[in-house]
Amino acid sequence: MRRFFRRNAAGYLFLSPWLVGFFLLALGPILASLYLSFTHYDMVSTPRWVGVDNYVYMFDRDRRFWRALSVTFHYVAIAVPLRLAMALAVAMLLDKGLRSIGVYRAIFYLPSLLGASIAIAILWREMFGLNGMVNEALAMIGITGIGWITTPSTSLYTIVILAMWQFGSPMLIFLAGLRGIPRDLYEAAEIDGTPKWRQFFRITLPMLAPVLFFNLVLQTIEAFKTFTSAFVISNGSGAPADSLLFYTVYLFNEAFKFFRMGYASALAWVLLIIIGAFTAVAFATSKYWVHYENERD
């Protein structure tokens, strides 16, 4: 054992900032939250053990939990495919060999850097407000707009649009994937008289499947965790009519507004299990649609 540490001391020394960070700032709170999820804890008094009561309450009696789940699922189901489609479409355009491609890449990536900021969320709120830019633009063509954010049936879609606009990160990954597809596959298809749409579905998509899978998993996880935009646009309440009550917004309110830290911890663990389940399903089904060039048989 001593020999092991002596031989690997330098490695562990270099790893130490990450190890200290992980054990103190991540693993500690993770384990603490697991414990707290079985307690009643208001952040002032000592946590009181309540067993599985928090979980029973969540599934059995908390209608807002189901509402938050519904909003989040709805969002994930719409935003993830749209964002991936947008990212792939732009990546394919950039793959056409444009001049100054680096500049375009930076421009298209910029929203992803800005997108998670509070400033952009506020800007979004103003743009889609009753007197916002969107309605001003619609007015120019004679359409009277509504308060897109204050109307429950449309509010979620304003956040979906914001998500679509932040396609930079998956776009870069798609672009790298597209660059990796050998050109002669398309040339062979071209000579065979394969129409472009068929080349896309029969060559591009299957060849991109590993990258698509990676993006799908990552973007799904990210979508489940969406917080800032929903919190800022709904003024932290999930309004109107809980249409923006994202899971994370609900969790945040339970923890830091109503100081039900034990219940919020239980919510966090359920979210973790949901994300884990989605990821597991994605991995389990991937063998049917993801092809890896160097896969072992």
Partner: peptide
């Protein structure tokens, strides 16, 4: 109305 055999074979790997 021609066909071509490529140096890299250009087979569709999937």
């Amino acid at each position: 109305d021609l066909s071509m055999v490529f140096q890299s074979y250009a087979l569709y790997p999937h």
